[in-house]
Amino acid sequence: MRKTIVMSLLLGSSIFAADYSGVIESPDAKKIIEKDLLGPVKVYTMPSGCITTDPEAIARGAFIFHNLNGEAIKGNPPKGLSKTDAKGKPKQYGNCVACHNVEGAKGGGNIGPDLTGYKASFIDSHARDNQFVYQKIADARVDSPNTHMTINLTTKLFNEREICDIASYIVSPK
């Protein structure tokens, strides 16, 4: 008795529930997403000598701020920056200008605050300090958990020195 029920169930399923998994494209994306997830919020301490008035560092910071990636640029990046990363792929830059206006910005966005006159308004007024700027660029979530800003050090998009270059540019007189 039991056997016949099982048999008919099996038969039934093979007749009615055609298996479309080999027909309909439905690839798994779970692994792709899992590998791509953003790590937890991280607090960083600015390394010593990070913020500098060295024009070469500031030039690199400015370049990272205003450009998207090595594929999109003509000419050479400033000394110490490359168009390609270690794997030979186009190097990603900050594209900060997509969201922020700043001195000399072309097509600056306004998703983030205007960083024009940052030194005078924010640093000289002591509203912010260098460590704040470093942390904001490295991992903006520390003081603003749901921020829409990009995460630049926790994602390893940039290394410490590059974060210092960008921060040096932001707090420099322009």
Partner: peptide
Amino acid sequence: TFDTKRGGRGLSCLSC
């Protein structure tokens, strides 16, 4: 999926 931050810049669809 829309709200999850990921990728090289730690963004989600929601970011924009």
